[in-house]
Write a protein that binds this DNA or RNA. Sequence first.
DNA 1: ATGCCGGGTACGACCCGA
Length: 259
Amino acid sequence: MRIVTWNINGIKARLPVITEWLSQQKPDILCLQEIKSVDENFPREAIESLGYNIETHGQKGFNGVAILSLQPFDEVHRGLPGNEEDMQARLIEGVFSTERGAVRVCNIYLPNGNPVESEKFPYKLNWMDRLQDFVQSRLEYEERFILLGDFNLIPEKIDCHDPEAWWGDALYRPESLAKFRKLHNLGLTDALRAVTEAPSYTFWDFQSGAWRRNNGVRIDHLMLSPQAADQLEGVIVHKELRGWDKPSDHVAVEGRFSF
DNA sequence: ATGCCGGGTACGACCCGA
C-alpha cells in the first residue's frame, strides 16, 4: 500500500497539479492539508472520476484536511478531541480494511505557532498536548497506525538547510521539540529517518528563491506505530513536484508498505 | 528577517502561511 501526505496550499489553485499527479502515480491513499475550502466547495467530481473516495474536514479560507482513497472508508473521524472551543479543521482520520486487518491513517495539519510571542504559539503547544493524548489512546489498539501530515516541526539540524537562522522559530525551538520528542517516545517511528540519514526537505518557501537555493526544511512526516513500521518498505519524497508549474510550497511524501 | 511569494476572501486591501 502506498500512503502519501501532501500540503497542497489550496485545493482550488492546486487541482490541475493534483489530478495530474494522481493520474500518474495512483497512490492508494493521499492525505491533503491546507485545502482552504469548505466541504461543499471541494472539487469532488474531478477526483472521484479518477477512482478515489473522498472525505474532507474543511473550513472557510484556511486550514482544512482531506483524505482521498482508492479503497472505501470503513470509518472516518474529524477533529482533535480535548477542546470544544477549537474550531480549526486540522485532523481527519480514516480506517481501512486489508486482508490482515485494519490500517488507521490519521492526517494532521499541526499549527505553525508563529509568531512565538503571539497567542498562536501556546495554541500550538496546547494542540500538541491534545495530540499526545489522542495518539496515546490510538496506540492502545495495537494496529497499523500512521500519523502523517504537515507537522510544522523540524526534528533535527539535518532537516534544515540553515539551522542557525531557523533556531528560535516556532518550528524549531526547545518547547516545540520537547513535545515532538514526547510524541516520538510513545513508540512511533519516523518513516523517513528509518530509511535514510540524508537531508530530505519537504518544504521550500515561495520567497527569496528558496527552491533555487535549496533553502528547505523537512516538516512533513509519517510517524508509524510498531505494527506499521514493521511493514515499511520505503519512503519517497516527491521533490520533483516543487519544480512543476504552479506548485505547492510543500511536496508529497510517500510511505510504501507491504500491506 | 519579515511579508520579497502565493492563496484566500472579496473586489481593495488585508489575513495567513513557515
